[in-house]
Computed example of a mutant assay.
Amino acid sequence: MPQGVTLDSPRLEDGAALWRIARDSRVLDLNSCYSYLLWCRDYAETSIVARSGDAGAHGEPGAPVGFITGYTRPAAPSTLLVWQVAVDETHRGRGLAAAMLDALTLRARSERGVDVIETTITPDNAASRRLFTSFATRHGAAVSREVLFDAAAFPEDGHAPEVLYRIGPIAPSHPHRPSPSQ
């Protein structure tokens, strides 16, 4: 966990900051600001926000510097679908995305019985592929891949296919840590 950063559930007032972080990523499909506000209201329990350590003068939480939005699938309630992962440019390269994913998974496992993580990744997104495959390795979980939505499913030209990564089952313990003899 990067120093000076805390993890928390998103709050309604975080919606605009999440939208800005997604917009500034220049990689994510940008949803409307309204959708991030709804996400912070309706899916806070299955999402996570990273906050800078700079609390306000009255003890209000620090500003969001990263987030993961997710939801449990209605047809598969033990599956957490990770929708978006984003880290503010000033906090990238410090392991924050992995720390958020580990913490969110641990919370979802504890509170909701989640034992499978799903996400979709376009073939050109090497950073997301690394994030989720290293997550699977840390948790000793299998990874399967299949095209969920091919390019023809999208109304605009040039959208890459979305490949579904299914990771699980996730062990009920903490992430895999090598024993001293390994």
Results as ranks from 00 to 15, higher is better:
residue 167 I to F: 04
residue 95 G to A: 12
residue 118 E to K: 09
residue 164 L to H: 07
residue 176 H to P: 00
residue 76 A to K: 05
residue 151 A to T: 14
residue 62 G to F: 00
residue 89 E to T: 09
residue 140 G to L: 06
residue 97 A to Y: 02
residue 105 T to K: 09
residue 162 E to Q: 12
residue 94 R to T: 14
residue 54 D to R: 14
residue 73 R to S: 04
residue 83 W to L: 03
residue 57 A to V: 07
residue 149 F to N: 08
residue 168 G to W: 04
residue 124 D to Q: 12
residue 141 A to N: 04
residue 103 A to F: 04
residue 89 E to N: 07
residue 162 E to I: 04
residue 162 E to G: 07
residue 82 V to T: 04
residue 175 P to D: 08
residue 174 H to I: 00
residue 150 D to C: 10
residue 91 H to I: 03
residue 174 H to P: 00
residue 133 T to Q: 08
residue 157 D to L: 14
residue 140 G to D: 12
residue 96 L to A: 15
residue 67 F to Y: 10
residue 180 P to A: 11
residue 69 T to D: 01
residue 173 S to E: 12
residue 174 H to Q: 09
residue 171 A to G: 15
residue 88 D to W: 09
residue 149 F to C: 09
residue 159 H to T: 13
residue 62 G to R: 00
residue 163 V to P: 01
residue 157 D to K: 14
residue 117 I to W: 02
residue 100 M to I: 13
residue 123 P to K: 12
residue 156 E to G: 04
residue 141 A to E: 03
residue 90 T to F: 01
residue 101 L to H: 09
residue 112 R to G: 05
residue 98 A to N: 08
residue 108 A to L: 09
residue 83 W to C: 06
residue 108 A to C: 15
residue 96 L to C: 15
residue 85 V to P: 01
residue 53 G to C: 08
residue 98 A to R: 13
residue 142 A to I: 01
residue 138 R to K: 15
residue 56 G to H: 02
residue 114 V to D: 08
residue 76 A to D: 05
residue 133 T to R: 12
residue 180 P to N: 07
residue 179 S to G: 12
residue 136 A to T: 02
residue 103 A to E: 15
residue 147 V to T: 13
residue 91 H to C: 11
residue 82 V to L: 03
residue 96 L to F: 15
residue 147 V to D: 02
residue 142 A to Y: 00
residue 101 L to T: 07
residue 88 D to A: 14
residue 95 G to V: 11
residue 103 A to Q: 13
residue 100 M to D: 11
residue 114 V to Q: 08
residue 58 H to N: 08
